[in-house]
Amino acid sequence: MAPVLSVEDLSVSMTDRDGKLVPVLENLSFSVDRGRTIALVGESGCGKSMTALAIMRLLPEGFVVTSGRILLEGEDVLTARNQRMRALRGDTVSMVFQEPMTALNPLYTVGDQIAEALYHHRNLSRREANEQAVEFLKAVQIPAAEHRAKTYPHQMSGGMRQRVMIAMAIACKPKLLIADEPTTALDVTVQAQIFDLLAKLQEETETAIVLITHDLGAVAELADDIAVLYAGRCIETGPSQEIAARPRHPYTRGLLACMPHLAIGQPKPSVWVDLGEIPGMVPGLGNRGPDCAFLARCSYASEVCRSQPQPPLGAIDTGHAVSCWLAREIAA
């Protein structure tokens, strides 16, 4: 069976002030099957959100796709006509944003906003659309859904709004859902609820999910696969359990090491142990040469890294690929 989404060799560049093309994303490839979830992980400035916008074909002005294909159920998004693209958005692929307040229209009730999408994409009557909207609010576990459908976004809490966003996104039963940091703005207990909700909905609808996040720890639960992006390049990809347990790229290892994990049921060490640290920061746009982009921050870097350009992703295990000259030496 063909994957729902298949991104092949995608490169995106930005035109700078002098009209030069500055690479933002380089040769990114990944795919996601029905009912599966892939997480794109990385720090800010790594190109995660650009990938999402490229798939939706909503790249901001000045950004262009310079190579590659984005196949949505076999159909190339990049060459689709504008009208076709509008039909695809919301119908075949939909998106959940980080800040639900700005993504919802403050002038309409949430019920109307969901019904609107159904009315346009599903050819339902107004009455049917309204009824279904309430059903979707129930599906995202909003209590008193009939009543809530008649309220405006500003009358809801952040978690409720994010649930409404998800209800809107799944209303047209999309084949692919792109969730861009869907829980970053929410409290921890609400985050856990939203992740559970996404998992449950996915089980029911078999929607493929592209989850964009900076939190490598939180995704292992929800995602089947992980692609770690660094400076616009995919540097490690594989099954999420495998990556969480046996990260190979120094950057992935660094990310995992620098996160203070909650240790429960065990007494805390009495002296502070410095967190693992990745020195420096992601190189800025335009400061990325052919060298390994992580070179300047890498504690493993050796002669081979300095003399050679960044290696392509090389398979290291089933489905696990790493872009690092030392991937084999850095034992799991």
Partner: peptide, 26 residues
């Protein structure tokens, strides 16, 4: 308990804690 279960590292312990202690709503 609810906070801890929401923030626990992924695994069976977390699932068990969440089922019992994670509260709904806000």
């Amino acid at each position: 308990w609810s906070l801890v279960s929401a923030a626990a590292p992924p695994g069976p312990l977390r699932d068990a804690l969440k089922a019992k202690y994670l509260v709904n709503g806000e």
